[in-house]
Design a protein around this nucleic acid. Structure first.
Lengths: 222, 222
DNA sequence: CCGCATCCGGGGCGATACTG
DNA sequence: CAGTATCGCCCCGGATGCGG
């Protein structure tokens, strides 16, 4: 039965004629931008995929946020032939939040130095910092692929001097990294020596030289 | 007496090893980014200035947020000779949020089309959209200044092809605009004809030709 | 199993009063 | 002027139920 009483208030508005305030009226409440993150880096998702990609969220909150996001025109539900269930996907307007999320991700660089024991992790979350902080030193050479293997597989590929990522698996990767994400990130960004990473639990297969092709795309403070 | 029980919990953390989540742990709760906006476009502020620039905020929340922002290293308190009271100002780390706020402001462009009757307004808020959406068509010519006069005075100046704003007053401005902000914005962005703006309550003094030097810096959808 | 809806306890938030 | 104190309310978080 449809609950007629669940009017679902769209978040308390700041009621300010200011772009920032208007933006926060739409994407400012808790979990909203993280849901957009999931849809941006993982593509169209089922409800369960979102629950799994957002550890800590309550199911009712996810449901509420999806309703609000759809009402705001940022996502839409669609049935896709490969899966029987409905998928949530970003609209073009929702995709435009990519630059907002990239700006926040860049600002957060220094906050990713250490990982707290209480911090959860999902493999595909590495896509954001890797694309933001890493570049290809010799773009004229053949592309390389590096797989970060762990619960999930994330393929990192050079692309015109930049880096692209996609869900795995990869076909004959040049290297495979496995282990705690802060070590994978540290070694790829050059903040941690490969030998030091290995001694702390990182597993590496392939030619270490391919790591030399990668360089930090910008100053990343610790 | 100091209340020993007010431990001021620093917002519930997402506890995710992800840059976006870490950023939102710091600036994600209500009012925080708006406080940063005030300090960015108005410069160092007194407590009362912030209260006035953030209509709707409760005094205890402002106090809490300032404490959290200082603990996070984004602002600091300082006594400045001109005023007897303490001023809040951004640290360099806090200033780095400018690009985050600009990204959100750009995304919010379409949301500034109409102004609700319940929307409050402060003159200096126009600084954000004007610097984001406006450019100078003929940067080689002498700079111009346009004053938007209303409760506050905001001076708009051309600067190397871009636009800069500063608090007024201006010395011999080329033009003066007064009236509702949505009309001022509409006319400056070319979305509203000057004649149409005047008929709806906009006041304009000076040479209308100076408006022709300004052009939208990017596609601004309605 | 998937996609929610419902219920409930706690705390963040909003409005106001008050104080140095 | 610059906050602190207090008090409801409602959002949030966690658990559970339940139809498809």
């Amino acid at each position: 039965m449809v609950n007629a009483a669940s009017i679902l208030m769209p978040m308390r508005s700041y009621a300010q004629y200011c772009g920032l305030a208007k933006a926060l009226d739409v994407v400012g409440d808790r979990w909203t931008l993280l849901i957009v993150r999931e849809l941006l880096i993982a593509g169209p998702c089922r409800y369960t995929d979102l629950l799994n990609g957002l550890p800590g969220i309550a199911t009712n909150l996810l449901s509420d946020r999806l309703t609000q996001l759809e009402a705001a025109g940022l996502i839409r539900q669609a049935v896709a032939p490969p899966v029987a269930t409905t998928l949530y996907r970003l609209t073009p307007r929702g995709e435009e939040l990519r630059e907002v999320i990239r700006a926040l991700g860049r600002w957060a660089g220094p906050l990713l130095g250490q990982r707290l024991r209480s911090d959860t992790f999902r493999g595909h979350w590495l896509a954001l910092p890797l694309e933001l902080y890493l570049a290809d030193r010799t773009p004229q050479r053949a592309p390389i692929a590096i797989v970060r293997s762990g619960g999930e597989i994330l393929v990192l590929e050079t692309n015109l001097g930049g880096i692209r990522t996609r869900p795995g698996p990869a076909d004959r990767p040049d290297a495979v990294l496995s282990g705690p994400p802060e070590l994978v990130l540290g070694v790829l960004l050059g903040r941690i020596d490969l030998a030091a990473g290995r001694s702390r639990g990182l597993q590496f297969e392939g030619d270490p030289k391919v790591l030399g092709r990668l360089r930090p795309a910008r100053e990343v403070k610790t």
